[in-house]
Design a protein around this nucleic acid. Structure first.
Lengths: 143, 143
DNA sequence: TATTGTTATACTCTATAACTATA
DNA sequence: TATAGTTATAGAGTATAACAATA
């Protein structure tokens, strides 16, 4: 593939991904389960593994005081629990509560429903093409 | 394609698009040309067509006072210009300045460069698959 | 009267600096 | 001394309510 073709493909793919991402965030919101993006991002990270506030701050690229505030909101909402760090009494370990995990599941389900409803408009052949492309996009996203 | 296959495809595509979008926004930033997301979004909209503050507020789904503030920042930075609305002396029309258009071009170029560099790791066959998928993703993004 | 745009005010999320407790 | 986390304070972004000018 020529450089110009690859550049044109990059433009088309980037725009499509960013537009889909934006529409998912805006259109798959639910008044009842709505939380701000920075809180959602922390929930998703804690779903993968428990973490300390400083680990979260570094991963999310925000300051420690910002993360203190974000975590305080999540704890107050009953979505995240603190416990003592085994072996370092300065630190705390954060984990999802049952409610936190449930909220995350529901938000993801709504987002996936949005995507499914968009895909439902495509033909079988178009879906087969996207099914071949999906792992490649995942590879791009994963670095 | 079965409903469960379609659901799994929706999950995989949505996650990949959101991750790519996030990485483009974070990793294609330039200290010199950096502007916050809400300002970028307004610049991109004015690139398509001139608009009044109230039109922008509705399109961006923010309040009129928020858009007043955002536009004030862009005007002060020399990226957007105001002019009188022909025929309605209450309203103003906003448009990109040369600097605004140039900034937009540079930010988009950096984002596309990020995407191109990711695609460069793929094989010719993988790129052909993505080239077939790109217009389908664009269709999904456009509704 | 209704609409466009702004100002007044308050709440949230961001940051840096300074503090407490512990390593 | 250095590190984990919080508190103090300030700078942007958001919103609703109230205002001025114009339709």
């Amino acid at each position: 593939m020529s450089d110009t073709d690859l550049g044109a493909l990059a433009v088309e793919l980037r725009l499509a991904c960013m537009r889909i991402s934006r529409r998912v965030r805006f259109e798959a919101q639910d008044d009842e389960w709505h939380i701000p993006p920075h809180q959602f991002s922390v929930l998703a990270r804690l779903d993968k593994a428990d973490a300390t506030p400083s680990e979260l701050a570094e991963a999310e690229k925000v300051s420690a005081p910002s993360m203190t505030r974000t975590v305080a909101g999540l704890v107050e909402a009953g979505l995240v629990a603190r416990r003592a760090h085994p072996g370092d009494r300065r630190a705390v370990v954060l984990s999802l509560t049952g409610s936190g995990r449930e909220l995350l599941t529901q938000i993801r389900a709504r987002r996936d429903q949005w995507m499914s409803s968009r895909l439902a408009d495509l033909s079988e052949e178009e879906l087969r093409t996207l099914a071949q492309a999906a792992p490649l996009l995942a590879k791009v996203a994963a670095r």
